[in-house]
């Protein structure tokens, strides 16, 4: 059993383990580009320490609630995180994506080496074409700050009210 083969095998396993051990280094505060996040900390849906440590759990909970039960509250919605924290374009006007280091989520996730696959499917920047005023201001009715509680779904727009009150052409028959 203690052949040349098993020696070679053992040596290669040890070498690989040593290599892997050398690679892992805990990131320091300096490694994390937290400037944008800190700017918005006051407006966040949860206190800073909560959102930092628990955002993944909240998103996970929200994702199942939305997919399976159709619950679409906004406080812990990924879409609303993106709308608040990520701008649609970089400074030079080109689209900003998760792969870019300026992307809000990337600033931290790249530094801690935590790969996420949210953005394989989800839009990684606000859908400007859909909503020009995607960016929320502090205290606005669109905000979901934890001190405000959860805001209800938006009231119907004038156009929508009109659709109901004035029967469509096809409905006249």
């Amino acid at each position: 059993m203690t052949s040349k083969f098993s020696q070679v095998f053992l040596a290669s396993v040890l070498a690989l383990a040593a290599l892997l051990a050398g690679c892992s280094k805990a990131p320091t505060e300096a490694d994390l580009n937290l400037a944008t996040a800190k700017q918005k900390a006051e407006e966040c849906v949860e206190p800073e320490n909560v959102i930092r440590t628990k955002h993944m759990d909240m998103l996970m909970h929200q994702r199942d609630a939305t997919m399976i039960e159709g619950i679409r509250t906004k406080q812990h919605s990924l879409k609303e995180c993106i709308n608040c924290h990520v701008s649609a374009t970089k400074q030079d006007g080109s689209p900003l994506h998760y792969g870019d280091k300026e992307h809000f989520c990337t600033t931290c996730h790249a530094a801690v080496g935590q790969k996420i696959d949210c953005f394989q499917c989800h839009a990684d920047r606000p859908d400007v074409a859909q909503n020009q005023n995607y960016q929320h201001a502090v205290g606005s009715t669109e905000g979901h700050h934890f001190t405000q509680g959860v805001t209800e779904a938006a009231a119907p727009t004038t156009a929508e009210v009109q659709m109901v009150t004035q029967p469509q052409q096809g409905a006249a028959q």
Partner: peptide
């Protein structure tokens, strides 16, 4: 791989 999906209709590779 896809990017810039509709925000209300996520869809992705694989």
């Amino acid at each position: 791989p896809l990017t810039d999906q509709r925000s209300y209709s996520p869809r992705g590779m694989g």
